[in-house]
């Protein structure tokens, strides 16, 4: 268990370092001068020099990286440069935005799991029937539907026409305001998980120990819930966990459609203002969350299934 933990931690640490380097290089790999991109080529040279100094671009590359690493290490992620009169640390901006995005991603995950598991189970228990076909068609539609089309459609139906749920124009919509965005963000994952649940459960139902459970006279409900689902859902939950990071990243489109505050909106604003530090900060934080969630999923998986640890 110890070696497994250490190995896994080592890989994650390496990924974190790699991601940091990649994020740092993002600004430097892009052709053109970042300062020209931000201020325009005809800007006042003094403004350009000030911005260059603020962004450390007047330093050599190793110094720049050392300062970047320093900003990451001290947790501020640097100071924004596009508005010199009101400098803010990137970390404080992210600190305001991140909870919104995490709440959205968590709600989307909940929607995905609550719909996917019953759908997959229903399809797997009646393979080849109309119910199975309907569930399969539903998940295929969910996988193929572009979310940036689904979201606005949901808005038109449930917000504009039916007026059942709050939308972007409402103040403090609370939990109800999370429903439509969560459905938009979670539908793709829901469809994926429903397909996985179905094929995983179908595989498990064919196993010997299920036959044994039936042979010893257990009711079908107990066989399915206690014996089959327990094993069939392990890969489904794992994939769901790993996909949490993708939900955080995918939230950028949802936040745009529903005009919600969050990490995605912060990132898009930063891109519009060409504020590279905030772009770096947002991508870094999302990537770190991604690595952390994957690590937790792996560890939980290792705890639950001793066979994994030995590999």
């Amino acid at each position: 268990m110890r070696t497994f933990l250490l190995r896994r931690l080592g890989t994650s640490l390496l990924a974190v370092v790699g991601v940091s380097v990649l994020v740092f290089l993002l600004v430097h790999l892009i052709p053109g001068d970042p300062v020209d991109n931000m201020l325009g080529e005809g800007a006042d040279p003094r403004d350009k020099a000030a911005l260059r100094a603020c962004m450390d671009l007047d330093q050599t590359l190793p110094v720049q990286f050392a300062r970047f690493a320093g900003h990451v290490a001290d947790g501020t992620l640097g100071v924004t440069c596009h508005d010199p009169l009101h400098p803010r640390t990137v970390a404080s901006l992210i600190g305001e935005a991140l909870p919104e995005t995490v709440a959205l991603a968590a709600a989307a995950m909940l929607v995905a799991l609550l719909l996917a598991i019953p759908l997959g189970v229903a399809a797997a228990l009646r393979p080849g029937t109309g119910l199975d076909a309907a569930a399969t068609a539903f998940s295929l539609a969910g996988i193929s539907m572009p979310s940036m089309w689904l979201g606005p459609l949901l808005l038109v139906i449930f917000y504009i026409h039916l007026r059942w749920l709050p939308g972007p124009a409402d103040d403090a919509p609370g939990l109800a305001g999370l429903v439509l965005p969560a459905v938009m963000l979670g539908t793709h994952l829901m469809a994926m998980l429903a397909r996985m649940t179905r094929s995983s459960l179908l595989e498990v139902v064919g196993e010997d120990y299920i036959r044994t459970a039936r042979a010893k006279g257990l009711g079908e409900g107990v066989v399915i819930t206690k014996h089959a689902l327990r094993n069939a859902l392990v890969p489904v939950i794992t994939v769901a966990g790993i996909q949490f990071g993708s939900l955080l990243a995918g939230a950028v489109v949802t936040e745009k459609v529903f005009a919600r505050a969050g990490l995605g909106t912060l990132l898009l604003d930063a891109i519009a203002q060409r504020d590279y530090r905030v772009v770096q900060g947002c991508t870094l934080v999302t990537a770190l969350t991604y690595v952390l969630v994957n690590l937790l999923v792996d560890l939980a998986y290792g705890l639950a299934d001793p066979r994994i640890r030995l590999k």
């Binding site: 390496l14 990924a15 974190v16 790699g18 991601v19 990649l22 990071g245 993708s246 955080l248 990243a249 995918g250 950028v252 990132l267 947002c282 991508t283 999302t286 990537a287 991604y290 690595v291 994957n294």
Partner: peptide, 9 residues
């Protein structure tokens, strides 16, 4: 490392 990076971002 590349897999640790959320693709669309």
């Amino acid at each position: 490392i590349l897999l640790a990076f959320p693709g669309i971002l």
